[in-house]
């Protein structure tokens, strides 16, 4: 029986064919937040507490990246045997911010300035579920 695909964190991204991170935008000043701002706008010159959910850009440019060769502590759910993985910091042009994500696929082609796109990929599994998370994949 196929496992059910569920997000590894609730409400941070959409689950469709063209997945996107979901942040929110201050209704007064337009500043974008990811993860969502919960209560107050963090622009010091703005006292708004009203936000609208927004889907963030699905593509961006690598600001930097790192490949981890040691198994991190829990709650990271490492595969057995452990495999090195890459985390990228990606600049989103429209939002003018940098958002982290693990790298999906071939991380040897990573470079500062590389174009990447958002995909969903398995983070870990249990008997019934496949827990998915957003990842950055090198784009054409």
């Amino acid at each position: 029986m196929a496992k059910t695909r569920v997000p590894a964190v609730e409400g941070w991204f959409t689950m469709g064919a063209e997945p996107a991170l979901v942040g929110n935008r201050c209704a007064a000043c337009g500043t974008v937040f990811f993860p969502r701002a919960e209560m107050f706008c963090r622009n010091p010159r703005c006292d708004s507490d009203s936000f609208d959910d927004v889907e963030l850009s699905r593509t961006g440019t690598v600001w930097s990246y790192a490949t981890n060769h040691y198994e991190p502590p829990q709650p990271y759910m490492a595969p057995d045997p452990f495999e090195p993985y890459t985390v990228a910091a990606v600049e989103l042009e429209a939002e003018r911010m940098v958002v982290l994500g693990m790298v999906d696929g071939d991380s040897t082609s990573m470079a500062v300035g590389r174009r990447v796109e958002l995909v969903l990929a398995t983070l870990f599994e249990d008997d019934e579920h496949e827990y998915v998370v957003w990842k950055w994949r090198p784009a054409e």
């Binding site: 201050c26 500043t31 622009n43 910091a89 429209a94 939002e95 003018r96 911010m97």
Partner: peptide, 13 residues
């Protein structure tokens, strides 16, 4: 980007 954040502040505004 600063530890332990997921993202930087946005500079749109």
């Amino acid at each position: 980007i600063e530890m332990p954040d997921f993202s930087t502040d946005s500079a749109v505004a």
